[in-house]
Amino acid sequence: MTECERLEELLAAAAVAVESESPDARAEASRALLAFQRRTADTVLARLAGAAVGALAHSIGDRAGVLDVLARCRARRARRCAGP
C-alpha cells in the first residue's frame, strides 16, 4: 500500500469515527493519523494528516465543521497523489 493510499484509508476512517460519535473510534483514528504524520517523508501528506488530527480534537464542538476539514484533506490528498 502506498502512502497516498494509506492516508486516504486513514482519512476515511476518521470521517467514519466522527460520524459514529464513538470516543474510542475517534481516539484510534487520531492516533493512526498522528503515527502517519510522524513517519511519512512526504511533507504535504504529513501536513494533511496533521490537519486531520487537529480537526478531530474538536469533533465535540462542531461535527459538521470537522467533517468539512476532513473532506478538504481528502480532496487535497487526491490532487497531491494524482500528480504527473
Binding site: A27, S30, V53, L56, A57, I60
Partner: peptide, 29 residues
C-alpha cells in the same frame, strides 16, 4: 468527565501534531 477524558486525549494528539508540524516538518524527508 468521560467526555473531558476523551477530549483531553484528542487534544494531546492535536498538540503533538502541531509540534511535529512546527519543529519536525521535513526532518524525515
Amino acid at each position: 468527565l468521560l467526555v473531558l477524558d476523551g477530549q483531553l486525549v484528542l487534544l494531546g494528539d492535536a498538540i503533538e501534531s502541531a509540534l511535529l508540524e512546527r519543529d519536525g516538518a521535513g526532518l524525515a524527508a
